[in-house]
Amino acid sequence: MIKTFTPDDVIKYVYKECDQEEQREIEEALLCDEKLKETYQYVVNMKDDLDKIDVQPSNKAITNILNYSKNYNLKKGS
């Protein structure tokens, strides 16, 4: 029997917070539950939209940090 899932379950699934068993069950339910599929689609769409506003550091800042660490011993040795 296919388990019933709520929109909150779908949100957890989209944000990868389900355990393997739940994940498998939701994927199964998505194949035959149109309403659930619709919910899934809009959560995914909204997540994509939210990704468009960039609140993450630039690659340059991260490279600087990693380089600082790599060169730390050289600096201390010189």
Binding site: V55, Q56, P57, I62, N64, I65, Y68, S69, Y72
Partner: peptide, 30 residues
């Protein structure tokens, strides 16, 4: 990185300042 950057960013509200402070934070950690 994102979690720390967002925390700083929400306080200073300036992307460039937040990036500088993120680097300083990690430098201190290193």
């Amino acid at each position: 990185k994102n979690k720390i950057f967002t925390k700083i960013y929400l306080i200073v509200k300036d992307r460039y300042v937040a990036e500088d402070l993120l680097q300083e934070t990690f430098i201190k950690a290193v």
